[in-house]
């Protein structure tokens, strides 16, 4: 597996780059990739290095203020959700665990809704990601407490607890929305955000999300060996010297930061944390030190492409991003569930 790592990145990084350029070129106004590169280079390199005389102001605005932020936010959200999925699967010792399946996503949404309703999101932009992270953390702690007994997390209990917590938290979110519907402007903001998607993302969204995703990724990498052992069971981890309780707390916090940061800028986008780690694991194996960064990169590329599909497949309107990811992820989830069921009944 180890020998495949260079090849994996040699194939994936060009895909990531190409999908980014593609996503900047394609849209309601199609631009040539030469124009796209010229705008980007013109902004990033010192003045005079690139000839931008032939680029119109409108083209420059479309690329730099509309499409690039959207692509970058998609990359961050994809990386964050994929890494978050890797951690959850290891923590729950279960390849079906994923932010939107185990209630963390719904928790993050509720946190965000509270930030809207309380008016924090107006007074300070940072309150939205912080509230979403707190919501994800509380939801995760709740689901873990419900689904784990004596260090064992049965798959059915986990999924049921996730569904239960998810429904409950979503109900509270909807309740808060309903009682605030009179405030039409705010309700519209909330609905728009809750539906999930990357339309009208700006540089602000990128800066709100990127530092937290980076922080979460670094924190996850630092804990990758604890994660390997925890994946083999809590007692096993403890017998090899892992401080299980503190490791679990830190990892839960890490995955809450990653999920919260992603949900804060994109709403709830499901299945990314399921599909991407699963595919990468098939190629590179389950060792978390390898799996975490590889899934983050693959998640970034995956979400850029999903978002591209979402806004181009049914022009002039957009399909919601969450629909595209669910269409990709749902079948994978079902296939995993069936295989898991077979293992249990025949093994």
């Amino acid at each position: 597996m180890k020998t495949r790592i260079p090849l994996f990145y040699a194939l994936l990084l060009p895909v990531l780059l190409a999908s980014a350029v593609l996503a900047m070129a394609i849209g309601s106004t199609s631009l040539g990739w030469g124009t796209v590169l010229r705008v980007v280079a013109g902004k990033l390199l010192p003045a005079g290095w690139v000839d931008t005389a032939h680029v119109t102001h409108a083209e420059s605005v479309i690329v730099w203020l509309i499409r690039i932020p959207r692509v970058l936010v998609a990359a961050c959200v994809g990386a964050g959700l994929a890494a978050s999925g890797v951690i959850m699967q290891a923590l729950f010792r279960n390849p079906l665990a994923e932010p939107s399946r185990v209630g963390a996503g719904a928790g993050a949404v509720l946190g965000g809704v509270i930030a809207f309703v309380a008016g924090w999101s107006v007074t300070s932009v940072i309150s939205l990601p912080l509230a979403a992270m707190t919501g994800a953390l509380i939801a995760l702690a709740l689901v873990y407490a419900m689904a784990t007994r004596g260090g064992v997390t049965p798959v059915t209990t986990l999924l049921l607890a996730g569904v239960a917590a998810g429904s409950l938290l979503t109900a509270v979110s909807s309740l808060l929305l309903s009682v605030n519907i009179v405030n039409w402007q705010m309700a519209q903001d909330i609905v728009f955000w809750m539906m999930g998607g990357l339309d009208a993302r700006t540089w602000t969204h990128f800066w709100l999300c990127a530092p937290f995703v980076l922080l979460g990724l670094v924190a996850a990498m630092v804990q990758s060996r604890d994660l390997d052992l925890l994946q083999q069971g809590e007692e096993t981890a403890a017998s090899f010297g892992v401080d299980v309780e503190s490791a679990k707390r830190m990892l839960t916090l890490t995955t809450a930061v990653l999920t919260g940061a992603a949900v804060a800028v994109a709403g709830l986008v499901g299945f990314v944390g399921l599909v991407v780690p699963h595919a990468v694991r098939l190629v590179l194996g389950p060792s978390n030190k390898t799996l975490l960064p590889a899934s983050a990169v693959a998640g970034a590329a995956f979400l850029i492409l999903c978002d591209l599909a979402a806004r181009t497949l049914h022009q002039p309107t957009e399909i919601r991003l969450g629909i595209v990811t669910a269409l990709c992820g749902g079948p994978v989830f079902i296939a995993l569930l069936i295989r898991r069921y077979r293992e249990v009944t025949t093994g």
Binding site: R93, R225, D228, L229, G233, V242, G285, S287
Partner: peptide
Amino acid sequence: HFAFTVEEIVRMGRYP
């Protein structure tokens, strides 16, 4: 749990 290779499993023993 998960398809770790035998060598990866044994290497986990060096954790402490």
